[in-house]
Design a binder for these strands. Structure first.
Lengths: 229, 229
DNA sequence: AGGCGCTTGTGAAGGAGTGCACAAAGTTGC
DNA sequence: GCAACTTTGTGCACTCCTTCACAAGCGCCT
């Protein structure tokens, strides 16, 4: 949140200078492009791609321009080239080892989520505290006791961890992940995790999303009554 | 994304003029405040609350100022008052009926997610196409066939729907939801839904979140090698 | 070979969001 | 009742993001 865009400053090189807002959309573009490739499309215009991804054409072009000039004027973008370039930017070339902690329904859902491997991730372990679950097979992996985390994390070089535990356990889990060398955490528990500044946490929160929807819904309702003043 | 902040324009009245970025943080504040209330705290300063929520104090104060002046200078904010006001802004006073479509692991997890009712939502029905699942009990509700959606939605006045189906089914489900009068959709399927402009869709995407984390992770790694130029 | 039409890439303008710093306002202690 | 201290609320400057508009560039057609 602070010192992000200070590398590659005065150079024409924009590598590393991709704005945060753009980074947030790259995965979307990547997915849409893969879908297009699967459908046999091999060239798209920015207008068509933007429409498919649900963003404005100008925004899309500017986003892509941060990666370099991979389009052909008068024609459009070659789908395979874009997939390649966005993939490289997102680090899909390498395979990030990922662990999931907490194998309730949510953990289950995440573990079975297809497209881990196709998007540059490799699910290396599932952890849970519940002795009933430990030893069980999920998504081709055996659930391991949470105490195994440090050894597994170190052995596999895990840097990304997913917290899918109840709220009460989340902070302890986060602490353990950090201690085991993980410095990117995806948190599904409805709590604010406290971590060292070097660790990157992203929060995914069902209730927040619903409440944001409810807010807009309510506003729409309000406007019916008090429009045009 | 387009015409959001045009009501209550030149007036001193800011009701309805809450910026989108602020709206996105209100649920977080609300949750943190409820936790504080549960812990017996009844007054917080903006600094303390900001620290707990993981945002800067200035941002927090500005966010709260959009709701009105509910703090006491020299003292802080009364927790119960803030909960009340944020709740009102988010529409927690009313109870929004919600349906979930798709009761796989993710649907299960969502259905069992506590704090629906405490946050202004009431889960009124679960739907699935799978005949094996229909009739099953989940979270105190019987899973109903997807074809029941229209009648239930109309009967309960459902305006918010959650899509927790596989990607292939998501668009059809969204169409059915829209046809049934739902105009706020929370989409967990990894596809871009096409809906009329009057319908509000929010997308929650595991893969995107992971890829954003991976991007930052990669950048951190890169910097180690090519820092300070 | 040259011009025409299409689409990209980008400079510049406008808007939204954030951080700073301080005045306004309340409380506590004397 | 006054002064000192604390904390809110907000105007201002700054940065980041988005949108607009158009020149630059490429392919196709004649």
């Amino acid at each position: 949140m602070t010192d992000r865009a200070d590398a590659g400053r005065d150079l024409g090189v924009r590598r590393g200078g991709v704005p945060e807002a753009t980074v947030g959309r790259l995965p979307l573009y990547h997915r849409v492009l893969v879908d297009l490739a699967d459908a046999g499309v091999d060239t798209v215009s920015s207008d068509a791609l933007a429409a498919t991804a649900g963003v404005s054409p100008a925004k899309l072009r500017k986003d892509l321009s941060f990666l370099g000039s991979y389009g052909t004027r008068g024609v459009g973008y070659e789908v395979s080239v874009l997939i390649e370039q966005i993939g490289a930017e997102l680090g899909i070339s390498s395979e990030w080892p990922v662990v999931i902690v907490g194998v309730g329904h949510l953990g289950h859902a995440l573990a079975n989520y297809g497209g881990f491997t196709s998007r540059g991730f490799r699910l290396v372990a599932l952890f849970d505290e519940d002795p009933e679950l430990v030893g069980t097979d999920v998504a081709g992996l055996v659930i391991r006791p949470f105490t195994d985390l440090p050894s597994v994390a170190r052995a596999e070089g895990v840097t990304i961890g997913v917290v899918a535990t109840p709220a009460a356990a989340a902070q302890d889990v986060a602490d353990a992940l950090v201690a085991a060398g993980v410095n990117s955490v995806l948190n599904f528990a409805p709590v604010v995790l406290t971590v060292p500044p070097s660790v990157d946490v992203r929060r995914v929160d069902l209730a927040s999303e619903l409440q944001i929807l409810a807010f807009h819904q309510q506003r729409r309702g309000d406007e019916l009554g008090q429009v045009a003043r």
